[in-house]
Structure formats: structure tokens, C-alpha cells
Design a protein around this nucleic acid. Structure first.
Length: 241
DNA sequence: TCAATTTGACCGCC
DNA sequence: GGCGGTCAAATTGA
């Protein structure tokens, strides 16, 4: 099977083979050498279409870990996944760990945008200021999928990936830190207190944008801050890879 | 009717 | 056996 996305044609295995390979690729995250870790006060749209496929209560963690995968996982075998977990120490902090690169949107536009983003990352610190993130928040958490509202994402169900890394710039985001780590030495998890030690600043991946995410964007908007015109004022963000 | 979410269950690793 | 990651049936909303 061949699939084209943003000018890139990708060959993927037959669905049965893919399903089988996926089924027996458990513990993938722990076996891979690297992951991209992002800490945010809130999650934000990253222009990519994520689909939630699991939720797990983690021992010694107050908050469940949510599992997202690229919506094109089954379509074109895009291996990108991410885990989102609320920090126990700072309830406004979310640790987002990305695994794998997106192969679903590596078109020229996305690559160029990613390159521009990399330049931005190198040029200036990344500070996303949420301002009074809790000013209008009643729950203060996007983890309302199963108890709060209906949990249904209101983001577009567009069948096409939207590769708009520059959207971050539209949100006025700046990069403070991107850190590359090995899962072998620093497994993903909620303990993020020691993650701010590296001075390295680099773009985690030229193929896609891990700097922002799309978890519960509507809830994010509705509960975390007040919109004033089109300006979004974030509170803070730290990136780790 | 379709597509996304929820959630219990399954599976591999430690 | 416990834990974490993923699957897939059931559920739900557009």
C-alpha cells in the first residue's frame, strides 16, 4: 500500500502485518533509545492529529498517563506516539513524551517550517507564558475525559494532517529549552524536577514539531485562560528531548 | 453512519 | 506477579 501525504509517498505493510507488528511491539518506548520530552504548563496544538488510545493509572503517580498516537498510525503506519502525564509536583505542569517521528507529514512545507522553527529555537529561549493559567479554570486540568465533560475532543476530525508548526509562532511561543536524553538513562515519567539541568538547546526533530501538542485544545482554551482578542499568554514551558 | 474516546483486558519485560 | 504499553470492543457524539 502506498500513501501520499504532503508530497511524500510512503509504503506501508499490509494491515494484518502492521497490526501484528504493532501488537508485538509492546514496550516499544522502553526499548527505543531516545524520546522527546516536553514539559508544559498546558498542552497546546502542535498541528498534528493525535488520537488517544489509552489511559493508564501509574503507580506512585497521582495522575493517569494518557497515550496518544498519530491518527495515521493505521493509515500509513506513522510510528509517532506521545504520552502525557500531569506532574505530581506541579499540577499545572504536564510532561509530554514523544516517541518516534512523524512520517505522515514530512512534506516540503513541514520540513521548511521545522527548519525555521529550529532556527527560532537556537536563537532565543522558549518561554510560553500562560499568564494566569488558573484564572478561569475550575478544574485546572485537562484530564477530564472520563469524568468531567464527555471527554470527546472537539478538535476537527479532518482526515488530513495539518502540519502547521508555525502556528506556535502565531501563539507567541518561544523556546526555552530542548533537551535530548536517552530513555536508557532517563526514562519518561512524571519526575521532571531534574530535567532542567542540560544547557543544550537544539531542535528535537526536523521532521515534526514536538513543541506544542493538541491535547484537549478546547478545554485548554476554555479552562486555562481568558482569551483577549487573539493573544494567548502562556505561563511557561520547558522542552526536553 | 462514521469516527473518536473510553476502558477492560491482554501481553511482554523486569 | 507487578507494571507499563497497547489493543479492541463498546460507547458516544456529530
Amino acid at each position: 500500500m502506498m500513501y501520499s501525504c504532503a508530497g511524500v509517498t510512503v509504503a506501508i505493510p499490509a494491515s494484518n502485518d502492521l497490526t501484528r507488528s504493532l501488537r508485538f511491539s509492546r514496550m516499544r518506548a522502553s526499548s527505543e533509545s531516545t524520546a522527546t520530552r516536553v514539559e508544559k504548563r498546558w498542552t497546546a496544538e502542535d498541528g498534528l492529529i493525535w488520537r488517544k488510545y489509552g489511559r493508564k493509572e501509574i503507580t506512585h503517580s497521582k495522575h493517569p498517563r494518557l497515550y496518544f498516537r498519530c491518527s495515521y498510525k493505521h493509515d500509513i503506519g506513522c510510528p509517532a506516539t506521545r504520552q502525557v502525564q500531569q506532574s505530581d509536583d506541579d499540577l499545572s505542569l504536564y510532561v509530554i513524551t514523544y516517541f518516534g517521528d512523524h512520517i505522515c507529514c514530512q512534506g516540503d512545507g513541514a520540513v521548511a517550517a521545522a527548519e525555521r522553527e529550529e532556527e527560532d529555537v537556537k536563537k532565543q529561549p522558549f518561554v510560553i507564558n500562560f499568564g494566569s493559567a488558573t484564572a478561569s479554570s475550575t478544574s485546572g486540568s485537562p484530564w477530564q475525559n472520563s469524568d468531567g465533560g464527555d471527554g470527546r475532543s472537539k478538535i476537527s476530525r479532518s482526515p488530513h494532517a495539518v502540519c502547521l508548526p508555525e502556528g506556535r509562532a502565531e501563539l507567541g511561543l518561544k523556546v526555552t529549552k530542548v533537551e535530548t536524553t536517552s530513555l536508557d538513562s532517563q526514562p519518561a515519567g512524571p519526575a521532571a524536577a531534574d530535567l532542567s539541568s542540560s544547557p543544550d538547546v537544539s531542535c528535537p526533530s526536523p521532521a515534526w514539531d514536538p513543541l506544542s501538542c493538541c491535547l484537549e485544545w478546547d478545554q485548554f482554551i476554555e479552562s486555562s485562560f481568558d482569551f483577549v482578542g487573539e493573544f494567548i499568554n502562556f505561563d511557561g514551558i520547558t522542552l526536553y528531548q
